[in-house]
Write a protein that binds this DNA or RNA. Structure first.
Length: 209
DNA sequence: AAAACGGGGGC
DNA sequence: GCCCCAGTTTT
């Protein structure tokens, strides 16, 4: 096992990838963070982002969102997968926000997980990006790379989330997702990782030839 | 624990 | 055309 140096890994990757992830656009905006996550379920950010931006031009709050007809909403987001289910979830959740939460997005894990379509990843993004609370959002990038690095040894994203809580300094709980997503998309890819150009290869436990 | 779900983009 | 990608719900 190579030595795991979290501080160094964060520093290197943070400088190596100057771009940012989609959710950063919605920092401090829980509703947009939530809806963009609902849209991006099992969909790549570069596909989701333009659709999300276009949707927010028409409806950037729950009130406007439910004033769109289901058909209008579907029309706006139909270029992404599961769009019918996603449209339904977005409108159902928006309706509940208005009826039960005074139009605001709740800020606890428990309340967020109660929504159809919201799992731990989405809830944690809403908490960390929308509300800027300490939370670890684990998607497939975070899960895969945290394991390849030998930082954790876990089978499910949920296990990864809990394991990371024990070893990641709290100041990196948000940043870890950002840099893992960028690293995962650009270098540490699922099937054919580009280990030859990897900036943190010296910290990695699972180098592919 | 494993499967089902549905669409875009790269080649 | 075929392969790659990606969270949540359901079985």
């Amino acid at each position: 096992m190579k030595k795991v140096d979290i501080e160094k890994i964060v520093e290197i990757l943070d400088n190596y990838y100057p771009m940012h992830v989609m959710e950063d656009t919605y920092t401090g905006q829980p509703y947009k963070a939530l809806v963009s996550c609902l849209l991006s379920l099992r969909t790549r950010d570069e596909i989701t982002f333009p659709v999300a931006e276009k949707l927010f031009q028409a409806a950037d709050n729950p009130c406007k969102m439910i004033n769109l007809s289901y058909e209008e909403l579907c029309e706006k987001i139909k270029s992404i997968n599961y769009y019918k289910t996603k449209a339904e979830n977005i409108q159902t959740i928006s309706r509940i926000l208005l009826e039960k939460y005074n139009g605001e997005v709740p800020s606890t894990m428990e309340e967020l997980l109660a929504f159809r379509g919201v799992g731990r990843k989405t809830a944690n993004i809403v908490l960390s990006v929308g509300f800027q609370k300490p939370a670890i959002a684990v998607d497939t990038h975070v899960h895969r790379i945290s394991n390849r690095l030998g930082l954790v040894s876990t089978k499910t994203p949920e296990e990864t989330e809990f394991a990371l809580r024990e070893i990641l300094p709290k100041k990196y709980w948000r940043k870890w997702n950002q840099i893992m997503v960028l690293h995962g998309k650009n270098t540490c890819k699922p099937i054919t990782p580009l280990c030859k150009t990897c900036p943190i290869i010296e910290y990695c436990n699972q180098v592919f030839s």
